[in-house]
Amino acid sequence: MKDGDENEQVRELQARLRQLHHFDRAPTGFYGTMTAGSVKAFQKKQGLPLTGSVDLTTWERLLAASRKPTADELRPSTTNQLDTPDARCMTGRVLCISKESRTLAWMIDGKVVSSMDVRFGSENTPTREGTFSVEWKARKWTSTIYHTPMPYAMFFSRGQAVHYSSDFAARGYAGASHGCVNVRDRAKLSALFDQVKVGDKVVVHW
């Protein structure tokens, strides 16, 4: 396993590293810089070469040092921990959205005002990455394509929006969006919706 991989084995890797206090967030199944850093920490403790990728020796040592993760450990319902904000999020008013930690941080001048768990589109309907701005908002909206409710929608990229999802609230990460950024905490999103203005920056990154 290495940087850029995304599969269930990566999710198990993260859950096992979390058992050993090397990975401090909910498993995402995506192998990014945070996972590579956690692997290096484990390799250092084991006296292995600090590659940041998982070869057979590293994996076998990890299996020996940890136990098989439970379903809740693989997909916990707990709130995800924020990662280090992207550099593009450090100035102005920004919805800073991390695909790796699956979080949205509402930031003003480099300070986190509020944060919440999010989920993204599937491989077939991916959430676009990059720097955008809030184009328009709708407190009550129904998708014209999928005919599903999208409360507190803040559109940022050709139909993709941050919005509340009752499916995310009910099923968690067992599901996915059609490309939008889903939020499961309705109260937090309602408060955020009132603060965000059309024209505020949106950054979607790994």
Results as ranks from 00 to 15, higher is better:
residue 6 E to W: 03
residue 6 E to R: 01
residue 7 N to K: 02
residue 8 E to C: 01
residue 9 Q to V: 10
residue 10 V to H: 02
residue 10 V to G: 02
residue 13 L to Q: 07
residue 14 Q to P: 05
residue 15 A to R: 00
residue 15 A to G: 03
residue 18 R to P: 04
residue 20 L to C: 06
residue 30 F to L: 08
residue 31 Y to A: 06
residue 33 T to C: 15
residue 34 M to H: 15
residue 36 A to N: 12
residue 38 S to L: 04
residue 40 K to R: 12
residue 42 F to G: 12
residue 42 F to A: 12
residue 46 Q to H: 14
residue 47 G to T: 14
residue 47 G to Y: 10
residue 49 P to T: 13
residue 53 S to V: 15
residue 55 D to W: 12
residue 57 T to E: 15
residue 58 T to F: 14
residue 59 W to Q: 14
residue 61 R to T: 15
residue 66 S to H: 08
residue 68 K to R: 05
residue 69 P to W: 00
residue 72 D to V: 00
residue 72 D to N: 02
residue 74 L to G: 00
residue 76 P to A: 02
residue 77 S to G: 12
residue 79 T to Y: 10
residue 81 Q to F: 06
residue 83 D to S: 11
residue 83 D to Q: 12
residue 85 P to C: 09
residue 88 R to Y: 09
residue 88 R to W: 07
residue 91 T to R: 04
residue 95 L to G: 06
residue 100 E to R: 08
residue 102 R to Y: 02
residue 103 T to G: 11
residue 104 L to S: 14
residue 105 A to H: 10
residue 105 A to C: 12
residue 110 G to D: 04
residue 113 V to S: 10
residue 113 V to M: 09
residue 114 S to C: 10
residue 117 D to M: 03
residue 118 V to F: 08
residue 119 R to Q: 14
residue 120 F to D: 08
residue 125 T to E: 12
residue 125 T to N: 12
residue 126 P to Q: 05
residue 129 E to S: 13
residue 134 V to F: 06
residue 134 V to P: 03
residue 139 R to D: 02
residue 140 K to Y: 11
residue 142 T to Y: 06
residue 143 S to A: 11
residue 145 I to P: 11
residue 146 Y to L: 14
residue 147 H to Y: 15
residue 151 P to V: 02
residue 151 P to Q: 05
residue 152 Y to F: 02
residue 152 Y to S: 04
residue 155 F to V: 02
residue 156 F to A: 03
residue 157 S to K: 04
residue 157 S to F: 04
residue 159 G to R: 03
residue 159 G to K: 01
residue 162 V to A: 05
residue 162 V to T: 05
residue 164 Y to K: 05
residue 166 S to F: 07
residue 167 D to C: 08
residue 170 A to L: 04
residue 174 A to S: 00
residue 179 G to S: 05
residue 181 V to Q: 10
residue 187 A to V: 08
residue 187 A to G: 09
residue 189 L to M: 07
residue 193 F to Q: 04
residue 194 D to I: 08
residue 196 V to Q: 03
residue 199 G to P: 09
residue 204 V to R: 07
